[in-house]
Design a binder for these strands. Structure first.
Lengths: 99, 99
DNA sequence: AAGATATATCGACTTTTTCCGATATGCCAA
DNA sequence: TTGGCATATCGGAAAAAGTCGATATATCTT
């Protein structure tokens, strides 16, 4: 994974918020309870909370996924996103040893 | 310090390289030896190594300084830059607890 | 005081990012 | 199989970042 790509993904207020919200999905996305939290939170919930358009949020989640910071799983018509802690481990490693 | 500003500063290959080079100034900037390494490395040395114009390097160093990742000290006609480890400590903290 | 050197700032142009609305795709239910 | 959701992708306008050459500023030397 490219270091610059990771930092670019983190260079946006809304994307940082999304990552932070996904640390505690139950707290930050109560309406997701209907679907459960096992696979993460669906795009629509994130969109509402972020206050951006659907297309923008979808795009942002793709950006975060390309950077390895979240992972997704499709279940029916929903796509659930959750943090990818491996990506954060890599980020820590980059900061410790490559910067 | 603003989180987004820090990550933007890190979202550039050349700036990442500069930060990395400044981890071992003696190794990466041997010609700096004449001036010593106590206050860091002067802009000209960094410019040569980076292969960018003087104005670009000066701008990049300002960007890194605004983000708190380097600090500078003027000595005569030279400005020396060195890593600001406090900034990196803050970065670690941000990643651990705010993202 | 004048010229040389190091760095910073300015103005301009190009590329990238941000964010949107519109449209396409995939999946479900009747 | 048609209509309705959820999500993804496309195309574009505006803002920001990347990068340069030219110029300004500060300092040193003579």
């Amino acid at each position: 994974m490219d270091q610059v790509e990771i930092f670019k993904a983190l260079s946006n207020k809304s994307r940082l918020q999304i990552l932070n919200w996904l640390k505690e999905p139950e707290t930050n996305f109560p309406d997701q309870a209907v679907h459960g939290y096992a696979n993460g939170v669906c795009v629509g919930q994130i969109q509402i909370k972020a206050g951006l358009t659907q297309s923008t949020v979808s795009e942002y989640l793709s950006t975060l996924q390309r950077a390895g910071l979240v992972k997704s799983s499709r279940v029916g018509q929903w796509t659930y996103y959750q943090r990818n802690e491996e990506g954060f481990a890599l980020l820590n490693q980059i900061i410790q040893s490559e910067i």
